[in-house]
Simulated scan of single mutants.
Amino acid sequence: MRIIAGHYKGTHLYTPTGKETRPTSDRARQTLFDILLHAPWAGKSFIEDAIILDAFAGTGALGLEALSRGAQKAIFFEKNTQTRQVLEKNIQLCRANSQSILYKDVLTSPPSNYLCNLIFFDPPYHQKLIPIAFEHLRRNQYISKDALIITETAIDEPLLMDQSVTLLNERKIGAAYLKFWKYSNMIE
Rank of each mutant, 00 (worst) to 15 (best):
Y103N: 10
L93Y: 11
C116F: 06
H7L: 14
R84P: 03
I51M: 03
A71S: 14
G60E: 02
F77D: 00
G60F: 02
S68L: 05
R27V: 10
G10Q: 04
D105Y: 11
F121W: 07
P111Q: 08
K73H: 14
F56V: 04
G70Q: 06
W181R: 10
N90D: 12
K182G: 09
I47A: 07
F121D: 00
P23N: 05
P16D: 00
A61N: 01
P111M: 10
I35C: 07
G70H: 11
L160T: 15
L62H: 05
K73D: 04
E48A: 07
A5Y: 04
L37H: 13
D54Q: 01
E188A: 12
I47V: 11
L93A: 12
L102F: 07
A42E: 09
T153P: 08
S68H: 02
F33H: 05
G6K: 07
D156V: 12
R2T: 05
F76Y: 02
A66S: 05
C94T: 15
H38N: 14
Y114F: 14
N117Q: 06
G174H: 06
N185K: 10
A74D: 01
F33M: 03
E135G: 05
E188Q: 12
E48W: 02
C94A: 14
E157T: 05
I143E: 03
P23L: 01
S98F: 15
L137Y: 10
A133Q: 02
V106Q: 04
T81K: 14
Q163A: 13
Y114H: 15
E48P: 03
L32P: 00
T59M: 01
E188M: 10
P23A: 01
L160F: 11
G18M: 06
S45C: 09
L115P: 00
A176W: 09
L118T: 15
V86Q: 05
Y103S: 02
T166C: 06
E170F: 11
I150E: 08
L87I: 04
G43K: 06
L167W: 08
Q163P: 13
I150P: 03
I187E: 07
